[in-house]
Nucleic acid binder design. Sequence first.
DNA 1: GATTTATTGAAACATATGTTTAATATCTTC
DNA 2: GAAGATATTAAACATATGTTTCAATAAATC
Lengths: 214, 214
Amino acid sequence: MCADSDVCGDTRQRVLQAAGEIFAEKGYGKATIREIVERAGANVNAVNYYFRGKRELYVALFEDAHKETTQEDEREFKRIRALPNDQQLHGFVKHLLKAFIHKEERAWHSQLMLRELIEPTAMLEFMIARVVRPRFAELVMIIRQLVNSNTSDLRIRLCAESILAQCVHMIHGRTIVSKLIPELEYTLGGVEMMAKHITQFSLAALQNLESDDE
Amino acid sequence: MCADSDVCGDTRQRVLQAAGEIFAEKGYGKATIREIVERAGANVNAVNYYFRGKRELYVALFEDAHKETTQEDEREFKRIRALPNDQQLHGFVKHLLKAFIHKEERAWHSQLMLRELIEPTAMLEFMIARVVRPRFAELVMIIRQLVNSNTSDLRIRLCAESILAQCVHMIHGRTIVSKLIPELEYTLGGVEMMAKHITQFSLAALQNLESDDE
DNA sequence: GATTTATTGAAACATATGTTTAATATCTTC
DNA sequence: GAAGATATTAAACATATGTTTCAATAAATC
């Protein structure tokens, strides 16, 4: 047996790749081992041989995806922090949106994360701790620089949710969005347009927030 | 055989109720006929006897839910149109949010609709046409009264999506939202707070929109 | 009240799917 | 090149689940 990726034949890798795509496409429940191994050009047994089972394959995959996602997040966040205040939000929104429009081979990393929000498995807690919370914290930091200094923390977190909501909705609700706004294509250009609108809408909101007493 | 609800024994009705709850809870795929009939106190055969199959049961249920939803929408929209301009948005947001916090017996009507957005079945098209589009149109009307008269239609529709996004996110992302903002309880009081924030945030955005030329 | 129809119940059937087994092939190492 | 470890394959197994069958029972009709 071999656990490391480079040592053994590429069957393990092909299964990982195929599983990533299919889990991202259909979710854990609807993905079947037989479809995965077929796409990987491997035998049904391959999943159990290399990963001990469907669930363990999913966990392995998820940890891969999480690692790549957090690395990319950290890299991007560093870059964004160096931007002028009023451009940071745009950078953040664009970063979130772009992850989902990647070329197919890579796209499943992000889609897998998003799926977890839709139909949670046992990995949800892990993901909230490692991906969602850091992103949320970063967004809160960006917002804090844009609003009145006496704005309460609760208010800022609510605004953060409002902005996240718009990003998530564009991806996850794409079927509906593209029917209601056919002008929005799900390409790199379309994403620019989405990011521009979300940023503009949210900046306008933040700059116009009423004071916190009520 | 009997198709009307009042004529035959109440088995058919009990199955409908149980199915509504379970489909809303778990989605079409994960709901099983055996669990449905068990909760309804009926035999496995009941589903096939009264509805010809699982899918047909789902369709029947969905049409029921849709009818009730659209009726309630129309009633509420009429009421909201009578409000002053600046209160209409708040009324609309509150209406959307409240539907999901109903007492359990009724909640599945709305939850079933929301599920369709998450894991679409063949009913998605039907639902977009009958529920989503009318709601979207209503929201667009409300927004149009609040912005500069030369604001483009595309811009207005983008804003409508931004507002819908926030509403949907509060319901559909409740697991995460309540972790990031523990102050937000999913009770009637909590919903008031959500509605207040979403309205305030969005009104601020709309009032501050830049002009459309670019 | 007998006959027909509608409803219910238990079991069987067919299929899909995760998992295991055991045989075969391939590779490594001495 | 032989022996043992590693990898692959095909088949079988176990379970879950939608569906069907058919007999038993209840309800309706005449």
